[in-house]
Amino acid sequence: MKTSFFKLPLLLVLFYWVFNIVFVVTYCVGFDDYFFISSDMTIYQIIIKFIEQILPNFFLQSPSSFVLFTTSTLILNKYAINQINQKNIINSLFIAALITLGDIVGRLYCYPYIYEWMQAGRQYLNLNIYFFFPNYITNLLKITIGYFFIVLLTCFSIKLFNKSYMHNDNALTQNESQQLHLGLFIALYNCYFLTALFALIFLYEDMYYSYYSFRKIIIDIVGLTVFLSVVNLLGYFLLRRCFTGVTETIAFKKLVFSSIGIFLLNLLLNCLLLIVLVIFSISLINYLKYWHKISDLEIIMICFMIVVILLISSCVLVRIAVKLLFGKMDKNYQNMSV
């Protein structure tokens, strides 16, 4: 039977979303006394209220989804579980239920104590609650703790159901290893980006909003989906021939540390480049205003050029770094194979 390295993890993520939706709907119907404001609500109004509850949960679970995908891909490949069949799909369904249940219990009972502990630590260190950096670090810690629960639950659940899965004994080929390394690298890069972004979003929400509006969450989901689709598609075509030096064994530690190092370096260089481009753009706009009235279209074109330059610089940096780290086969492995 043909093996597939990413279909089972993707199914696991899909089941994770479905069970989260089931939990939200069950909670709203059975435990939320304020969900049904009046008894004469129409079906359309009820559906809209359900969507307003489900979409924020879906949006907030997107970083955890990449962690779940990466962890499940690694663990399933470790146990040689790469076949799509009824038995493996049913096991993945049970595993998704366990992960979702554990994640919900952690969010309901563990996260409040963790949050209080972090707030007490900030007060002990006498950090200003309205200062940007401590708030950002606190949000990063909260998100990272959530990742820890997801990784722990995924490893435990797959190990628990390992004997129930149908395994394959075929060793990884060089081409399959390249595909796995490419997929894991892209997933990890998405995870780092969403972690940094969501820590900033939570900071912004805590300071200015007390709830998510329906319109805002739709705009956020659509914008994030389009952006990630374009960037991931571009990243796939840029990096698909860069993992030529990988071996049949997944170098996960190297993937994790190299990808986070490349991400941080890329973030630092882009911030510096952005500062330079903004200063140059302000000077250019002031210069153009001196000679003639600058139009809104010209300002939009300047902003668009800044985005294009940042995107090109990111692509070049990531491609060069990946080729340097994964483009040459390790000498020790090369000597062993000879």
Rank of each mutant, 00 (worst) to 15 (best):
Q179K: 12
K163R: 09
T225V: 06
W17E: 09
L125T: 03
V13S: 02
N85L: 08
F94P: 02
D33R: 11
T71M: 08
S4T: 12
L255D: 00
I260P: 01
E298A: 12
E116I: 10
D206F: 15
P9N: 05
I37E: 12
M305T: 08
S295G: 14
I260G: 05
I285C: 06
L238P: 04
Y165R: 05
L152R: 01
S92V: 14
F66W: 11
L268S: 14
K254C: 03
Y136N: 06
N270G: 07
T144W: 09
I217N: 06
F31G: 09
G235Q: 08
V22I: 12
N190W: 00
L180F: 00
Y124H: 12
L14W: 04
I43R: 15
I306R: 13
V278E: 13
C271F: 12
L297R: 13
S210C: 01
F243H: 03
L239Q: 02
K7H: 04
M301R: 08
C315G: 12
C271R: 12
G327S: 06
L200V: 02
E52D: 09
S281G: 07
I320Q: 15
K2D: 11
F185D: 06
K159M: 12
V231C: 04
K159L: 11
I129K: 14
S72M: 05
N85G: 07
Y109S: 02
